[in-house]
Write a protein that binds this DNA or RNA. Structure first.
Lengths: 149, 149
DNA sequence: CGAAACCCTAGCGCAGTGCTAGGATAAAGG
DNA sequence: CCTTTATCCTAGCACTGCGCTAGGGTTTCG
C-alpha cells in the first residue's frame, strides 16, 4: 500500500508550479533544483501530466511548463490518478475497469477494498492545489516567509 | 497504492477460519482448497499471523490452525498490518516509525498523506471478522445457503 | 511406526521502480 | 543563420519485492 515517487514527486512539482504561477513558464530543472529531485526523472513525469491536460509546455529558451488550469480547479486526486493510475487497493475494485473475478458477486472482502478505495479518493479529491498553496503560505509565514515544500 | 496478495489472501484465510470456527483446527490445505490458493504459499502467511497472536496452531494429524481470539475481537486492520506492515502511503507518515525527511516540518504534501493513512486505517479498523462473517452469511443466504468468500 | 499436519529455509522468474543516458526537435536572441 | 536553452523521445539498467515452488525437518495422533 505504498505510493510511488511518481505521484509524490509529481504532486510536489505541481505545487511548486502553483506557487510560482505568476512567473511565467517554469523550467523542469528549476523545479527539480528547488525540490531536490533528478531533473531528467522529473522530466519524464511531465509527459503524462501534459497528456492529461494538467500542464502546458512552452519550448525554447525561457520555456518551461505552466499550469493548464487554475490551481483551484486542479485536485490532488487528478494528479495522483494521472501518475499512479486509477485508485485501487486491489484490481477488482479499480476505479476504471475492475478486473472482477468470478467470486466478485459473493466476495465479502471486496466490500472492504471498495470502502478503502472510496476513502482514499475522498481525501485526494477534497484538496485542490489552491488549498495546498494556502497551507504552504500559512506554514511558511510562520518561518521567516520562506517557501518550503 | 496496491495491496499485495499477502494481505488479501491472509484476510480471506482468516475469514474462512472464522466461518468454520466451530469445526476444530483447520488445516491450511483445506483453507487453500476452498479459497483456490496455493497451500504452500498460504502456509507461509500463517507464520506472521501466529507470531502476532491472531491464530494458534495444533500440530500432528487432525491439526491445523484456530483463531486465537473471538472473531469480534479481531479487526481487519490487525490482519492487514500483520501481513503488510504498518499503514503508510509513504514512509514519512508510517504508523510505526515514520522516516521523516528534513523538510517534514514544512511539508504540505505530507499533510495529505497523513490524512490518506488515517482514512485507510479508519476503514480497516472499523470492521471485525465477526462483521465479515455476518455479511458473508447475509450474502450467502441469498444464494442457496452456500458460503462464498 | 507411519501418516498427517505444521514448521523452516532457500531459491527463482517476473514486473515495476527509480533512475541515467543519448540524443532529436523547437524556439528565442544575437 | 547559429548558438543556446529548453522540451521531447527512446532505451537501458540495477535493484527490490512479489508470488510462488521446492525440499526437507519436526510434532503428534492412531
Amino acid at each position: 500500500m505504498k505510493m510511488s515517487t511518481k505521484g509524490r514527486y509529481g504532486l510536489r512539482a505541481m505545487l511548486d508550479m502553483a506557487i510560482h504561477q505568476n512567473e511565467g513558464p517554469i523550467a523542469v530543472h528549476s523545479i527539480a533544483e528547488r525540490q531536490g529531485l533528478s531533473d531528467r526523472y522529473l522530466e519524464q513525469l511531465m509527459v503524462p501530466l501534459k497528456k492529461a491536460g494538467l500542464v502546458k509546455s512552452v519550448r525554447g529558451p525561457q520555456g518551461g511548463y505552466v499550469l493548464a488550469k487554475e490551481p483551484k480547479d486542479i485536485t490532488v486526486g487528478e494528479i495522483i490518478r494521472t501518475l499512479e493510475g486509477p485508485i485501487a487497493p486491489v484490481d477488482c475494485v479499480s476505479e476504471d475497469y475492475p478486473e472482477e473475478c468470478e467470486r466478485a458477486e459473493y466476495c465479502v472482502t471486496r466490500l472492504i477494498w471498495s470502502k478503502v478505495r472510496d476513502s482514499i479518493a475522498e481525501v485526494l479529491d477534497s484538496f485542490s492545489l489552491e488549498d495546498l498553496v494556502q497551507e504552504s503560505r500559512r506554514i511558511s509565514t510562520q518561518n521567516r516567509y520562506m517557501y518550503y515544500i
